[in-house]
């Protein structure tokens, strides 16, 4: 009898246990998305990165925290010296209820120019501009701190962003004294020329203390023209963007470097794009290095908004005997929830 009762109870327990969770239970899970970038690359001079690779995988989680905050975490998985590493590219919280302003707390990509704020899967070309890699570092300028941004009451779109951060970028900031912080600011303006075209003009600046205990100053400017016709806008569009970036590192290992990059993007058909980019790195350079000039051409086929196949060819003239030439093919996918892309 006892045995029967035990079996009965057990089976009952089993049944209750096996009941699926009410589907509402999932409603509060964060939105999860994954981006993966697969790359096949062939370089003539530097052959170390030739061949097929998982360029990067990004895991994104985003959700409202409560009625007051929304949060986003982006983890990047990348190969670093033969081993895969997972690192927080961004992890931040933003306010929802503060009128006129957004307060941001955490680690995020700094508004030092336009390109620096993009995730790798949203880069207009397979690799970053030369100046971004040389000045802001391979991972770009991403800092931990507190930021505030707001719209300035002007007749056009005008936004001011200000970040007060720890300043951990190895080359630029990274002061021994933890009391020394780095500040980054961005002033963005956008005008609608017509329903189809906009121009954007922004300036950015940053200041912090470097490992020599001296100042590092950054300055940048960006200009973007975008066109997408109101009729037939699904099939054609055009973009021209130019960015200038300069660094002035003072102290023992003083270093001055600046560059300019400009690209054109034209949408030929619903799923086809052709693009061209010119980089010039080494304007008002303090070291006796030759400037680098790069031409990049790219053709992209986007089967849908969630996948893209891109073929890129670039030549770099950096003063060496032989120019670098690289051909790359990238396949880029996005699964799960994907937060809307900025304009």
């Amino acid at each position: 009898m006892k045995l029967l009762l035990a079996i009965f109870l057990c089976s009952f327990a089993y049944i209750t246990y096996a009941q699926p969770l009410p589907s509402r239970g999932k409603a509060f899970n964060p939105d999860i998305g994954v981006n993966a970038l697969f790359l096949d690359q062939e370089s003539k001079r530097d052959k170390s990165e030739n061949g097929m690779s998982l360029q990067e995988a990004e895991l994104q989680f985003s959700s409202d925290v409560d009625a007051y905050f929304t949060a986003r975490v982006l983890l990047a998985i990348e190969e670093e010296a033969g081993e895969y590493e997972i690192s927080p590219e961004e992890a931040f919280v933003e306010t929802l209820q503060v009128p006129y302003a957004t307060i941001k707390i955490g680690k995020s990509k700094m508004p030092m120019g336009k390109h620096n704020q993009l995730h790798s899967h949203a880069f207009p070309f397979i690799n970053a501009p030369l100046q971004n890699e040389a000045i802001l570092g391979e991972e770009g300028l991403s800092e931990t701190g507190v930021g505030a941004s707001g719209l300035i009451p002007l007749p056009w779109f005008s936004e001011l962003t200000f970040d007060y951060t720890q300043g951990e970028n190895e080359d630029l900031f990274n002061a021994g004294d933890k009391g020394k912080k780095a500040i980054i600011g961005h002033f963005k303006n956008l005008w609608e020329l017509s329903d189809a075209a906009t121009i954007e003009f922004g300036i950015s600046g940053a200041q912090g203390t470097n490992s020599d205990g001296a100042d590092t100053n950054l300055a940048g400017a960006d200009f973007t023209f975008k066109w997408r016709p109101v009729e037939g806008g699904k099939y054609h569009s055009f973009e021209w963007a130019t960015e200038y970036l300069q660094k002035d590192r003072k102290g023992l290992s003083a270093d001055k470097l600046s560059g300019i990059v400009s690209h054109l993007k034209y949408q030929l058909a619903q799923r086809w794009w052709v693009q061209y980019r010119y980089d010039y790195l080494g304007l008002n350079q303090s070291r006796s290095l030759d400037p680098s000039k790069r031409h990049t051409a790219l053709i992209a086929f986007l089967p849908s908004e969630f996948s893209a196949l891109r073929l890129q060819y670039e030549t770099i003239d950096d003063g060496q005997a032989e120019d670098e030439r690289t051909l790359s093919l990238q396949f880029n996918i996005s699964i799960g929830a994907h937060p809307a892309h900025a304009y």
Partner: peptide, 12 residues
């Protein structure tokens, strides 16, 4: 004349 699925989030 625009497809509401694919509007761009213009800052304006």
């Amino acid at each position: 004349t625009q497809d509401p699925h694919y509007l761009e989030a213009k800052p304006s």
